[in-house]
Structures are given as structure tokens and as C-alpha cells.
Design a protein around this nucleic acid. Structure first.
Lengths: 286, 286
DNA sequence: ACCATTCTCTGACTATGGTCAGAGGATGTC
DNA sequence: GACATCCTCTGACCATAGTCAGAGAATGGT
């Protein structure tokens, strides 16, 4: 019903943004250098970057990227050297001249942003920035894919570490993960290669699946990533043949409990001997 | 002070949007047809459009536009015919096949928007849409230029008409503009050729300038356009050699009065015999 | 009737963006 | 040490984007 006005608002905004900001940006950043060359220079950044990594980030053909890099090296802005760790790869770093160009790009971009909001009153400026921050979070959350991984995937391990660390901070008596357990399938959402949301399912002897280790990075909360993780974990459990999911949690985790209830979970009796668990929930999957 | 975090938020959002939405959009709309051709087709729309108008809206070189149009006419999607009102101009309209292609583009764009928000919960979706609507309004307001025109400019006349109509609606006894007055300089903000904000200054015998006919379109309120109009009218008064501005208003217009007070105006005695005026303000310009 | 101006269109270019196949060196695995 | 794979780079292309000068028809003002 309101679907149509929702998409209309989104499309209208997109039109405004690309027309008023995107165009401005191109004319700003593109001075002197072709747009893709400028973007590449910007992406390499003061700390340098691997060529392979740049290819992924900018989604460019390898041959094309090589040629773009050539222009930058010819202009004396960038230096390429083999990666000592893997000599098939090359690392790109900015020369002093390159750093100067980078700073100039950065300043232009900063100036563009400042100029864009300048006509607004401070009050309206505040409203705009707040709206953009909200939209940024939600758009990122909406466009971040949940990837299925095993428990020993490096990203999964990093996420688990951060999950345990948070429990240790929040539980009054701390938290001890005990012996690592290599069972189950996990979903992770990543941003720039780092995990921002994580969760898993494990089969139980009675045929249910247990949802475990649900975790969302602080900076990504409030965007519905947790609910989405829960939904997709349930779908994963269904795919693996389970008709019912259970989970346990600690009374400290109030937001989590509220979310389980919103998602249709009902309290059940203790089904395990997890010493940290104080509440148990279950939901039948259709 | 908070300037730096403001621009950082804006830049961060821009990065997210262009990366996650812009790229998606190009791959979506660009299927089969080059991006600019698709955009042009979309811009012509079911109602058709003048070639001159398209050139302005898309900001294209006239030669380039002609060639883009050629591809559309060659493919049987668009028909060009001379404008009966001015035979130098040409009008572009979609053929039935063109309308079908247009609809397809429209549906794809709609689908893209729906898909983007699909992973969000209804609650988060609502928040996103609200944030985008706010941002849309504010960005448009911030990037709309105020143009100086004379009182007889067609856009100024249209704006004046809407201003008078609104007074007539809001004043208990209606409003009669009386004899049109061709004095003063005006500022208008336009969107797609229609006025969305309007206001003027007129020299008074005592050397002050009078601010008059301040008006902002309903759909554009709440974005600070009024304050900006006021500021720029003051600047216009200064440029024309005035050191003080005055204005009168009606008690009905409560938002306007609040804005004048925020902008540093102080109440003064009645300085004219305007029968609709119930409050008078002045501000000394530096 | 003249003149400056406007609009569209053509020709002639150049630059930018993007693709593909394959060479050649480096790496990891069995 | 053989083999599949990965990474970078080159050559050979082609499409798209964008610019500029000017021709030719139409218009508006004087």
C-alpha cells in the first residue's frame, strides 16, 4: 500500500542527490584529471594500497586499472613496488607530489561539502546532517549481504572474538567462552572486510536448531541488522531441515530479548545447562 | 567547530549512496542502451518534451543531444516534430514502442528502489524513507539559487499570484491586492521552472528599504528557504544603498513573525497605512 | 527590410571508459 | 617438480562521452 510512496520518495531523493550533488562532485574532482584517475588517486590514499585491493574496491578490469596506474606513475604521483609478502602482487603508494594532489582532492571534497550546506541555517544544517547519518546507517545495513561461513573462517573467528569480548564486558561476573566449539554454520555481514554482524545455528539432538552468538557491531545498531540476521538464520535452519529453533540468553541483554519477542519467540523451560543462560526461547518455523 | 564532523558525515553518506545505489542504478538502467540514451528516453517521458528543454535539464551539448536523439528516432522510440509555436524548436514525443521502453525503465527503477529497502524491517524502512524525505527537501532548498528579477518577470508574476491567493485564503476577510505595483526588485527560487520562493524590496521615501511579498511554497516549507530569502533580500537592500529595512505583516502569519524575530527584527510603530498590516518591524543593516 | 539572435543539426575531432585474450612471473599444493 | 591458479601487464579493440566551429532556417526587434 504505502510501498508506492516509499519507492517514490526514494527515487525522488536519488534524483535530487545525483543531480545536485553528483554532478557538482564530478566537476569538482574532475578538474585536470579524468574522473577515474582522480578516484584512483584518492582511493590509494596516504597509506597506499595493494593493486589487487584497488581492483576490488573500484571494481575495475585489471588491464584498465594497470593503465590508470600508469598515468599516475608517469605523472610522478604514485610508485609501484612488488609486495614483499607475495611477489605476484604490487603495492601502490603516493609520492610526495602524489600526497600533495591527494590533499588537494580531499580539500576540494571538503569544500564542496561545506558549500553544499552553507545556504542552510544552522538548525536546518543540523537536521540535514542527522537525516543523512540515519540514512547512511540504514542504507549500509540494507545493502550489506549476509554471507554463510563455517566456524573456522577467519572473519567468523574475528566476529566471535568480538562477541565474547562484549559478553565479558556486559556480564557482571565476566564471560569465559570455554573450549572452542567447531560446530554449526554462521552468517556474517562485513564492511571493508571487517565483520559487523554475526550469528549461527547449531543442530540439537532433539532435531531443533539452536541460534547462537548473535552479535551486531555497536556502530551498526539501530538499523535492523539484528532482526535481519535472525530472519536469515531461521531461513538457514529451515534449509538445513529444522522445523523449530531455540535460543538461550542472559537477562542483561534486554534489547536482544525485546527483539526475540517481536520476532515471535516464546519463553520455554531451560533446555540446556549453559551457566550464563537465564532465559530460553523457542519458535516453530513454517 | 562541528563543521568538520558535519562535512565528514555528508561525505560519508555520499560515498555510501554513490557506491551502493549509484552503481546499482547504472547497471540497472544501462541494460541494452548506453546510460545517456536511457536517461534521455526517460527524461522525454510519456508527455514528451521540447529539445531545448531537454538540453537544459540534462545539461548536454546541442550537437551531442542531436546525436542521442538520432539513436532514439532510428530505433523507432521517439518522434521529432517542429514546435508549432516556434518553428526553430522541435518537440520530442515517444512512439508506442518508446512508451513501452519508458515503462520498462520506470518499472526497473521502481523495482530497484523496492529491492534496496526490502531487507529492512518495516520500522527501519519507515525511518529511512523519512530521513530521505527530509534530506531531499533540505538538499533541494540548499542548492536552489535565488535569482534577481524585476516585478514584471513572468515567474515573478506567477509567484505574486500564488502569494496573493494564499493571503486571500488565510486572512479572515480575504485579501485584495489592489492596483498592481511595478516597483521594486525581487528574488525568486524556481524548481523545474515554477516559483517555489519569492520576495522583494522596495525603496521608501525615508531611505529605508521595505521587504515585501515574502512567500514560500507549501511543499518547500521547513527547509529554511524563508530565512535565506530574508538574508538575501537584506543583502540586496544593502547593495542598493539602504542601511535599514522595514516590513509589515499580519498577525495571522505567526510563523513569519517568529522568523523575523529570530532574524533580529524589532517591532516598530506603524509606518504605513496598509489596511492588512497589524505589526511592523525594522532592522538596521551593517 | 535588415540584423542580431536562437535553435537544430552536421562534420570533424579527441578523450575517456571499458572489454578480452593471452603472456609471463610467482605461488601453493599434491 | 608438475600443475593449477593467481596477479599484473600488454596489445588490440570498440563504444561512449564530450567539444567546437559553423551552416541553415526561423524569429523578434527596430
Amino acid at each position: 500500500m504505502s510501498d508506492r510512496t516509499e519507492t517514490a520518495t526514494l527515487r525522488e531523493f536519488n534524483r535530487t542527490w545525483t543531480q545536485r550533488v553528483g554532478v557538482l562532485e564530478e566537476s569538482f574532482l574532475g578538474t585536470g584529471r579524468p574522473l577515474n584517475v582522480a578516484r584512483l588517486l584518492f582511493e590509494i590514499g596516504p597509506d597506499g594500497a595493494g593493486v589487487r585491493e584497488l581492483r576490488d574496491r573500484l571494481d575495475l578490469d585489471s588491464g584498465y586499472l594497470t593503465r590508470l596506474l600508469r598515468r599516475l606513475t608517469d605523472d610522478g604521483l604514485v610508485e609501484l613496488r612488488p609486495d614483499p609478502a607475495d611477489r605476484r602482487r604490487r603495492l601502490a603508494t603516493l609520492t610526495p607530489a602524489g600526497r600533495a594532489s591527494w590533499r588537494e582532492l580531499d580539500e576540494r571534497s571538503e569544500e564542496l561539502a561545506a558549500r553544499l550546506v552553507a545556504p542552510l541555517t544552522p538548525r536546518q544544517r543540523g537536521r540535514l546532517i542527522e537525516a543523512l547519518a540515519t540514512a547512511n546507517l540504514l542504507v549500509r545495513a540494507a545493502t550489506t549481504a549476509l554471507r554463510e561461513v563455517g566456524p573456522d573462517d577467519p572473519v567468523a573467528r574475528e566476529a566471535a572474538g568480538r562477541y565474547f569480548a562484549e559478553l565479558d564486558r556486559r556480564f557482571p561476573g565476566g564471560f569465559d567462552p570455554g573450549v572452542p566449539d567447531h560446530e554449526g554454520r554462521f552468517l556474517v555481514a562485513t564492511s571493508a572486510g571487517r565483520p559487523v554482524a554475526y550469528g549461527g545455528v547449531r543442530p540439537l539432538p532433539d532435531g531443533s536448531a539452536e541460534i547462537k552468538r548473535m552479535w551486531v557491531d555497536d556502530a551498526w545498531r539501530g538499523a535492523g541488522l539484528g532482526s535481519r540476521m535472525l530472519r536469515e538464520l531461521e531461513a538457514l535452519a529451515v534449509r538445513r531441515g529444522h522445523g523449530r529453533v531455540v535460543l538461550d540468553t542472559n537477562r542483561t541483554l534486554v534489547e536482544a530479548i525485546a527483539m526475540y519477542e517481536r520476532a515471535g519467540y516464546s519463553p520455554v523451560e531451560r533446555y540446556n545447562d549453559n551457566p550464563y543462560a537465564q532465559a530460553w526461547f523457542a519458535k516453530v518455523l513454517t
